[in-house]
Design a protein around this nucleic acid. Sequence first.
DNA 1: TTTCGTTGTAACTATAATTATTACAACTAG
DNA 2: CTAGTTGTAATAATTATAGTTACAACGAAA
Lengths: 147, 147
Amino acid sequence: MQISSRFTIAVQVFACISTFAEEHKITSDFLASSVNANPVVIRRILQQLKGAGLIQVTRGSGGAAIAKPVETITLLDIFKAVECVDGDQLFHFHENPNAQCPVGRNIHNVLDGRLENIQKVMENEMSKVTVADIIRDTSKYIENENR
Amino acid sequence: MQISSRFTIAVQVFACISTFAEEHKITSDFLASSVNANPVVIRRILQQLKGAGLIQVTRGSGGAAIAKPVETITLLDIFKAVECVDGDQLFHFHENPNAQCPVGRNIHNVLDGRLENIQKVMENEMSKVTVADIIRDTSKYIENENR
DNA sequence: TTTCGTTGTAACTATAATTATTACAACTAG
DNA sequence: CTAGTTGTAATAATTATAGTTACAACGAAA
């Protein structure tokens, strides 16, 4: 099981906005072409990012823009915006372990805390990377191409 | 997107073996009843754990047993055994980002290292918990019930 | 050596999530 | 009003998960 491509697509959206906002209007079609995905898929991701307050999308005339200072948006913010995980739980239990069985009725007691901790460590690492970092690296790589 | 229940089921398998091995033969039916899942699903997980050298399964007469000292088996070992992730990559990219687009052709350069790092941190945390810890906690919770 | 319980695995189904696609009303700017 | 765009519904295709039936292969014990 992998984390869905919505997440990496969403990150690419930020990189695109920052790279091209001055030259192009950032429409869902434009983004879809950079990602090589369907414009409707992009629009849905844009809605999720907008719902989290990370971008703004202009209806009618079109165009997406980043809504907050890029140093204040982390990969974790993006992840939580687009990865609709059931109750924010990364790990999935099989439903209804057998309460007649001593192990079945205690498996959550044993695991919940430890799994929560693993998830927290991962999220903490995600929160260390900001969109500013992504933007800086993106322009660095693009500049390196032009020599 | 969540990590599949195979992982938590597999952990429960170890807890069951350690808790009941002396009283019962650990068959797929017995495990299926504790987990409340289908025996064939359990047998498939047992095969994955066996393939990773973590347990042994006796054909014919039946029964599963832990194959290595429990302090040497970590949650990461179990995770890697049952979670068949494409190329060990937790994060999924949309295929074929547009190579005509400067951002599209550099998104992997920008993200691969950072995502790998996030995954590594998570795996490192998983490797800190051993089956011995799981077993200890399980008996602790079961004992606490009996007062 | 026959019987019995079990594993290993194939085949098929059901369910759910992801991603793509078509279509169109609602909206905004010119 | 027109053109281009967003927001969203509806539908389909694809993939992964999980359940189920079935049965050959196997091992131990009668």
